[in-house]
């Protein structure tokens, strides 16, 4: 699984971080960092949920 964030869309509102903190982190500089671009399979549910809940639909999960 590969996580791709469209940073042109991302508004750093950290919804993804709330759901999958192992993968997404918004730091004090207000930017989003993807901690693991290829997260392990056991995080799939959280990552998919984060993609679903992202208000900007900025996250895509590729297989």
């Amino acid at each position: 699984m590969k996580v791709v964030v469209n940073f042109d869309l991302c508004e750093s509102n950290a919804v993804c971080m709330g759901i999958a903190p192992e993968v997404f982190e918004v730091r004090d500089d207000d930017f989003l960092y993807v901690l693991q671009e290829e997260p392990p399979e056991e995080l799939r549910e959280q990552v998919t949920e984060a993609a679903r809940r992202c208000p900007k639909q900025a996250i895509t999960v590729e297989d």
Partner: peptide, 12 residues
Amino acid sequence: VNRPRHVVQARM
């Protein structure tokens, strides 16, 4: 205000 991380952590 410009503290997204804090809000999201508190929300959890």
